[in-house]
């Protein structure tokens, strides 16, 4: 018998699409429009936020919804980056690059995922990290194909030369992909994932092939993580093994912990917070890992539900006080 894990980590996942989705959509469209008068730096910042939102949301399908923590998403993001860059170099066709850059990581996720889901959650986190390290070493050492440490210069896409145009292209791609995630988590399959998260044993008992379902979730996360990487390659222009490094696997983890895993838009909030914070921190110090490490440590220790959790706590606190005040009034009257 496996030990049942009653995990407070797997409460209900909230997803008020209309409220938060609306706010996020408006702000993400509005920000570059306002800033189009400003240097393209801000538009590029907004673009990278959008890409990271996709990366984070795809990761959260595994972590927040299924309860499986992957420490190796960089393998899929990074292979998306490299496949896309190599296709762009040989054919300079963006659709082909996006297609290849998401299907190749998905195939990789099938192979690695098969082993990662073989045993418990404990093994899953370890194995994802180990396989990601394998991909990193492979890309680092395969100089003839990947250029090793020097990286690859990705050719520019002529019709996306203007940063603002590129931004809107990324925005459209990300919104469509995130919408697909929304559909997935509301489908019967999505409910099955949530049930796996809340009680894996019971889900198994009612006849759900848990391993297979988690593997499918892993492949989807790999596909969209790869897609995020595939668009990141032409966006960033020069790619290096840094994009497959374990610190890249850390990115979605930080975003989800910051934003909160238990909300559909948690990783999106987290992506904004993470990119902006990193931009500010790296102005002052090179030791951004240390700063983020300490922040993560404190959040995990104090408020494991992230920013969204804090917001909800404040919300319930205010509500409680209002009812309390009303009660007091009634008593006085």
């Amino acid at each position: 018998m496996k030990k049942a894990i009653h995990s407070p980590a797997c409460g209900e996942v909230k997803d008020s699409l209309y409220s938060w989705g609306f706010v996020i959509a408006v702000t993400t469209v509005a920000i570059p429009l306002i800033f189009s008068q400003f240097p393209p730096y801000y538009i590029k910042l907004a673009s990278s936020i959008m890409i990271m939102i996709l990366y984070g949301v795809s990761f959260n399908l595994l972590y927040g919804y299924t309860g499986y923590l992957s420490f190796g998403q960089a393998a899929y993001f990074g292979s998306g980056v490299y496949v896309s860059a190599l296709i762009l170099r040989s054919t300079s066709s963006l659709p082909l690059a996006l297609l290849g850059g998401s299907i190749a990581p998905a195939l990789l996720a099938i192979v690695f995922g098969y082993f990662c889901v073989k045993r418990s959650k404990l093994y899953f986190a370890m194995l994802t990290l180990a396989f990601a390290q394998l991909i990193y070493t492979l890309i680092f050492k395969w100089r003839s194909l990947t250029g090793g440490d020097d990286g690859i210069v990705v050719p520019r896409i002529p019709y996306l030369h203007n940063p603002l145009t590129f931004y809107f292209f990324i925005l459209a791609l990300v919104l469509v992909s995130v919408f697909i995630h929304w559909v997935i988590v509301h489908s019967p399959f999505g409910h099955m994932l949530k049930s796996i998260c809340q009680n894996q044993e019971r889900t198994e008992f009612i006849g759900v092939p848990v391993e297979k379902q988690v593997l499918v979730a892993f492949i989807i996360a790999g596909f969209f993580g790869g897609l995020a990487g595939a668009i990141y390659a032409p966006f960033i222009g020069v790619i290096s093994p840094k994009l497959v490094h374990w610190t890249m696997s850390l990115t979605p983890v930080i975003m989800v912990v910051f934003g909160g895993a238990k909300h559909f838009w948690g990783p999106a909030i987290g992506a904004i917070v993470y990119i902006v914070l990193k931009d500010i921190i790296t102005l002052y110090t090179d030791n951004w890992l240390l700063v983020f490490g300490l922040m993560l440590l404190i959040i995990v220790l104090i408020s494991p539900r992230g920013v969204m959790g804090v917001l909800e706590n404040i919300g319930t606190y205010i509500k409680k006080n209002i009812t309390k005040a009303n009660l007091m009034k009634e008593r006085i009257n």
């Binding site: 894990i5 995990s7 972590y63 404990l122 850390l250 440590l297 995990v300």
Partner: peptide, 14 residues
């Protein structure tokens, strides 16, 4: 939960 324990020791690496 085991996921938090993982996250916790992961932050030590950083």
């Amino acid at each position: 939960d085991v996921l938090f324990q993982y996250l916790f020791t992961y932050t030590w690496i950083l």
